[in-house]
Amino acid sequence: MGLVARAIEAAGIPTTALSIVREVTEKTPPPRALYMRFPFGHALGEVGARNQQFDILWRAFELLFEADTPGTIRDSGLRWKRENYPDPDWERFRRLGPVARPSHPR
């Protein structure tokens, strides 16, 4: 998947990727990856766990804007089936966008 993310980014589109096996992602890092130590086939979490799925999407898009180094693998710290996920904060979602960084002034 890292190869696909790299090709898309190389074509000019910023990417954010989920990762469930850090050791695999480290071999072909995409530009930005959010790592969860979840089982195969469960990148968004558990069946029907809507809040969890939104939480992971929020983190993935947050990373899209916050990462500043190619090949960033951010550990979400989420533990499989051991977290409580609150209702989505839509206002917080709507605020996601470019962040000011000293190294990338705009």
């Binding site: 980014e9 910023p14 096996v21 050791e23 890092p29 190619p70």
Partner: peptide, 29 residues
Amino acid sequence: FPSLAARWGKTLVQHAGEIPWVEPLLPLA
């Protein structure tokens, strides 16, 4: 058993090469 997946991952080939990068400039909305 995710630990098996991790062990498998360590056997994969390391892809070198530059990782492309484009700054995201648009708000998600």
